[in-house]
Design a binder for these strands. Structure first.
Length: 563
RNA sequence: CGGGGCGUAGCGCAGCCCGGUAGCGCGUCUGCUUUGGGAGCAGAAAGUCGUCGGUUCAAAUCCGGCCGCCCCGACCA
C-alpha cells in the first residue's frame, strides 16, 4: 500500500476521551474511530490487524476439527425465553421489535441458536461429537462501556460450541480447545496465563480463563511464580498471614469510648492497634434476611466467595436498615450483644483473642474480644480476597496479585441449554439424552488491545510480527529526487513480489514527519532510502522493537526480515 | 444505577466566575522557501458555542430540563 493513497488518519495529539495506552494508540494510529459509547468502526489499518488475529484463530480452530459457520445476529426473543436468558441478561440484551411488533433482540452470544440448530439436525449419537465456531459481532448493552475496545457494546468474538454424547466427550472437546487457545495466544505473541474461574451465570461444571497481566485489566488474579498456581481472585486461595494477638492472659471485654471513629483506619489509629486486630462487621441482606459477616480489619470481602457460601444473591444492607436493626451507625457494629441473625466469620479471625469490635452503640467499641467465647459464629468460611505476599496454597512460594485482561474463556456447560431447549439425541441403547455442551470464547479486539498494551513505548505501537498490519514500512526520503523515487519504486515492487506486506511511505513530507508516523504505527521493520544511502548502495534498516538502526546492504536487511 | 468531570472549527484547548464583535495551537487549502525526528513565511476556508426552554435591550457566559461522552464504583457470558 502506498501511504499517499492509504486511509491511515494518524494523530499527533492524544484524544481527550482515551486514557489507557491501547485506546490512545489505536486512535492515534488511525485503527479505529468511535461512533458511540462502546461502539467503534474498524478503519483499514486496524482491520488488517484484526484480520490477522482472526486468521490465526481460524487456523487453530480448524486444526482441532472445528467447523466455521455464521449465525444470525438478529434473533427472535422467544429463543432466548426458552432458556430464561432473556430475563437473565436483562437490560444487557438489546431489544427491538420488527414491523409486525414481534419481539426481537440482538444476539449477545449464541448458545441458544446453536441449540436450535442442534435440535433440528442432531438425532443420533452417530452425529456427535461436533465443534462449531463462528467469528462474529456480538451485542451487549453494557452498563458501562470503557477502556476503548476492551469493553465495548459491539465486539467481534470467536465463539465455539462443542456437542458431545457424554462427559468424557466434553472433557476431550474442552481439552482440544485448551490446546488450541494456547497455540492461538502464543502465536499472537501474548504473555498469557490460565486461571481457574467461577462459572458465573453461564452455569456448568468447569471453566478457565486465559488472561494477560495488565494494570488496565478489569479482573484481578493471584499468581504463584513457583508452581504456576493461578486463579481469579474470585476463587483464589492463599495461606493468610496469621494475626498476632498479644500475650496478655485472659481476654476480657471492655467497652471503650471511641468518639467519631467509624472506619477501620480511624479506630486503628485512635486505639493504637494494628488494623488486623480489629474485626470488621458487615451486614448484608440475602433472601430478605440480614446476615452478619466478620472479617479481619485489614482484609477485603471477596463477594464471589460469599456468593458461593450463601448460594443466593445478596446486597449490602442500607444505612437505614442497619440503624433499625442495631440502633447505631454502621461504623460501630460488632457481633457481641448483637441482634439475632446468622453470623458468618472469615476463617482468618477464628481463635482470635484481644480483638476489637464495635459496641453496637455510637462512639463506642469493645476491646478484649475472644472469638468463640464472647460470640459464636454460626459458620466459618473463606470470605476474604487473597493478597500479594501471602503464601501459595500449593507450594512454599508467595503469591502475586495482579490486574489482568481476559482474552479467552472456556466453559464446560453440560446440559443447561440443551435440556431447556430439547436438544437431544438417541444413544447407543436407543435412549434419549440431552446433548452435553461446551462453549469457548475469544475476544478479537481484546487480543489486539492486549498486544498493544504490552508492546508499546512513548513513540507508539510495537507490533508483534503475527499481528502487524504491515511487516515493512518503506520510507523514501526526499521523494522529489528522481533517484530516490526510482529506487524506492523499484524496491517497493520487489518487496511486494517477494510476498511481504509493505506500506510504502511515498509521501512528499519531511523526514521527521515520516519517522514519527512509522514509529507510531509500529510496523516491525523500517527500510529507509535517501540520497545518502543510495550513494553508499545501502539502505537504512530499523527494527521497531529494539530501536536498533543500521546502514547495511539491502540483502542483509531482507535476511534479517526473513528471520 | 450512585459519585465525579466534560461538551466552543477535523483534533487539542482558552474564553464562562464578572453577559456586549468567538479566540489560540495543531491540522486543512493556496503560494514561496525548506527536507534526517511531527519546518518557516504570507494568505485563506472552516464554528447552529451539545440541545430545548427561561432571565435580559443583549446569553458561549446566568438559571432550569434533556441528550451525549469520559472516569471511579455497582454490574459483567
Amino acid at each position: 500500500m502506498r501511504f499517499s493513497k492509504a486511509f491511515i488518519p494518524t494523530l499527533k495529539e492524544n484524544p481527550a476521551d482515551a486514557e489507557i495506552p491501547s485506546h490512545q494508540l489505536m486512535i492515534r494510529s488511525g485503527m479505529i474511530r468511535q461512533l458511540a459509547a462502546g461502539i467503534y468502526s474498524e478503519l483499514p489499518f486496524g482491520w488488517r490487524s484484526a484480520k490477522k488475529a482472526m486468521q490465526i484463530v481460524r487456523e487453530e480452530m480448524d486444526r482441532i476439527g472445528a467447523q466455521e459457520l455464521f449465525l444470525p445476529s438478529l434473533n427472535p426473543i422467544e429463543v432466548w425465553e426458552e432458556t430464561g436468558r432473556a430475563a437473565g441478561f436483562g437490560d444487557e440484551l438489546f431489544r427491538l421489535e420488527d414491523r409486525k411488533g414481534r419481539g426481537m433482540c440482538l444476539a449477545p452470544t449464541h448458545e441458544e441458536i446453536i441449540c436450535d440448530i442442534a435440535r433440528g439436525f442432531i438425532k443420533s449419537y452417530r452425529d456427535l461429537p461436533q465443534i462449531w465456531y463462528q467469528l462474529q459481532t456480538k451485542m451487549r448493552d453494557e452498563p458501562r462501556p470503557r477502556s476503548g475496545v476492551l469493553r465495548g457494546r459491539q465486539f467481534i468474538m470467536k465463539d465455539s460450541y462443542s456437542l458431545d454424547i457424554d462427559q468424557a466427550g466434553l472433557d476431550k472437546s474442552y481439552e482440544l480447545h485448551s490446546q488450541a487457545y494456547h497455540r492461538i495466544f502464543e502465536r499472537c505473541g501474548l504473555e498469557f496465563f490460565v486461571v481457574g474461574a467461577s462459572s458465573g451465570l453461564m452455569g456448568g461444571t468447569g471453566s478457565q480463563e486465559f488472561m494477560v497481566a495488565s494494570e488496565h485489566g478489569e479482573d484481578r488474579v493471584a499468581l504463584c511464580p513457583g508452581c504456576g498456581y493461578a486463579a481469579n481472585l474470585e476463587v483464589a486461595a492463599s495461606r493468610a498471614i496469621p494475626i498476632a494477638d498479644p500475650d496478655e492472659g485472659d481476654s476480657e471485654i471492655e467497652k471503650v469510648s471511641t468518639p467519631d471513629t467509624r472506619t477501620i483506619e480511624e479506630v486503628s489509629k485512635f486505639l493504637k492497634v494494628k488494623p488486623e486486630r480489629l474485626i470488621k462487621t458487615l451486614v448484608i441482606i440475602s433472601e430478605e434476611k440480614p446476615v452478619m459477616l466478620l472479617i479481619a480489619g485489614d482484609d477485603d470481602l471477596e463477594e464471589a466467595k460469599l456468593q458461593g457460601v450463601l448460594g443466593a444473591p445478596f446486597r449490602p444492607a442500607h444505612p437505614e436498615e442497619i440503624e433499625e436493626l442495631f440502633g447505631c451507625e454502621a461504623g460501630f457494629l460488632g457481633p457481641v450483644n448483637a441482634p439475632q441473625m446468622p453470623i458468618i466469620a472469615d476463617s482468618r479471625i477464628m481463635g482470635g483473642k484481644h480483638r476489637i469490635t464495635g459496641a453496637n452503640e455510637n462512639h463506642f467499641h469493645i476491646t478484649g474480644v475472644e472469638v468463640g467465647r464472647h460470640f459464636k459464629p454460626d459458620q466459618a468460611a473463606n470470605l476474604r480476597a487473597a493478597r500479594s505476599g501471602e503464601g501459595c496454597p500449593n507450594c512454599q512460594e508467595t503469591l502475586r496479585v495482579t490486574n489482568a485482561i481476559e482474552i479467552g474463556h472456556i466453559f464446560k456447560l453440560g446440559t443447561k441449554y440443551s435440556s431447556a431447549m430439547g436438544a437431544k439425541f438417541l444413544d447407543a441403547n436407543g435412549k434419549e439424552q440431552p446433548i452435553i455442551m461446551g462453549s469457548y470464547g475469544i475476544g478479537i479486539a481484546r487480543i489486539i488491545a492486549c498486544a498493544i498494551e504490552s508492546n508499546h513505548d512513548k513513540d507508539g505501537i510495537i507490533w508483534p510480527l503475527s499481528l502487524t498490519p504491515y511487516e515493512i514500512v518503506l520510507i523514501g526520503i526526499n521523494m522529489k529526487e528522481a533517484e530516490v523515487s526510482i529506487q524506492t519504486e523499484a524496491l517497493y515492487a520487489d518487496l511486494l513480489n517477494q510476498g511481504f506486506d509493505v506500506l510504502f511511505d511515498d509521501r512528499d513530507l519531511r523526514p521527521g514527519f515520516k519517522f514519527k508516523d512509522a514509529d507510531l504505527l509500529g510496523i516491525p521493520y523500517q527500510i529507509v532510502i535517501s540520497p545518502k544511502t543510495i550513494a553508499e548502495d545501502k539502505v537504512e534498516f530499523k527494527q521497531r522493537n529494539s530501536g536498533a538502526r543500521q546502514v547495511i546492504k539491502l540483502e542483509e536487511a531482507l535476511q534479517i526480515i526473513r528471520g
